[in-house]
Design a protein around this nucleic acid. Structure first.
Lengths: 182, 182
DNA sequence: CATAATTCATTTGTATACGAATGATAGGAA
DNA sequence: TTCCTATCATTCGTATACAAATGAATTATG
């Protein structure tokens, strides 16, 4: 994953930074004000509004960086969503498409495409539920089951690399706050 | 925004919870283990891998919840990305499309569509750069400029609502950790 | 049992989001 | 000036992601 080049006055996108090794030093990034004095167009009575300090903007950037790290390491060529689906199917054993979607917070229209692509990769299988004519039961193929262990290991490495800019105690706090937020 | 109904053993998606008022009590959500004992298919020598504890998964859910809150309150019918673009154009005055994309960490292919849709809404204007035949200069229309103040106010309310599950001190810590992460 | 409500899978439409490629333009180097 | 490189805007392809609607099947309700 990469994005076009940048000039110094813009955000250094995640793909432009090495994500291969754990970094202890943090280069200048999105939180550094893009515009020196943000309040330029804000009247004197308005409170300053900084996009770079908004939780939604930061969440989008953090998610973006995580996706870059995931894709860089995902030798198995799965997207984060496909990865989540695989992990959940392994946990559940077998379930319907809509149920799988709820297990990973993906809606019915989206999970359809995710499952289709996992089927194309021969990682999951679909069969009609004999007890419910509406349902298609999803389960892992033997090939899919074979990959679960390495998927979990890969997922752990991606998480570690994503959290690398934080100290160990900060990582725990971040996860805790995110769990409270979701 | 909404998603299909859920059974109790699945994630309660953000759209199913009221986001209109600030909540002090937190209902059971994604962080509650979806599967009681996750390690079912993990061999005894494998460390437990919990999807619900992975930073990427939590970031996706947090981003998802923020988007729901944003859309619920976005009376101006802007997406979060369109909103970010408007704020940045107001700060920058005028800039090229690619430059705007870098200012909000959106690649050239994506910013094209974002700007197109803002043009359709008559919020921004495009004109050829007289000094550089490659560039299209983006600027706010008078209508766009008129909306900036209410956009900033709306953005602040969305951020507040998103952070509502956290105590004030926790909110500052979360923003700090996200800034370190990005 | 018969009807109503729900659930499931699917499709269509819209909007990010990124990779890759392309043609036009600009700027620096030989 | 010529060539090389970089940048810009654009297009195509793929993949989430959600709203809304649909038809089929199931479950709940009267």
């Amino acid at each position: 994953m990469s994005l076009p080049g940048q000039t110094p006055d813009t955000i250094a996108l995640p793909s432009r930074r090495p994500v291969t090794e754990v970094r202890s030093e943090r280069p200048a990034r999105a939180q550094d004000p893009v515009v020196a004095e943000n309040g330029a167009r804000t009247g004197p009575e308005d409170p300053p509004y900084r996009l770079d300090d908004q939780v939604g903007y930061l969440l989008r950037l953090a998610n973006q960086r995580h996706t870059v790290i995931f894709q860089d390491r995902a030798i198995l060529a799965l997207t984060p969503t496909q990865f989540s689906a695989m992990i959940r199917i392994a946990e559940a054993g077998s379930c319907s498409q809509n149920h799988l979607g709820r297990l990973i917070a993906v809606d019915a229209a989206t999970i359809k495409g995710v499952v289709d692509r996992l089927r194309t990769k021969r990682l999951v299988r679909l069969e009609k539920d004999p007890n419910d004519g509406r349902r298609n039961l999803i389960s892992l193929t033997p090939q899919g089951r074979d990959r679960i262990r390495s998927l979990r290991a890969m997922g752990q490495r991606v998480s570690d690399a994503t959290l690398a800019p934080l100290r160990p105690d900060e990582r725990a706090v971040l996860l805790d706050l995110l769990r409270k937020l979701v």
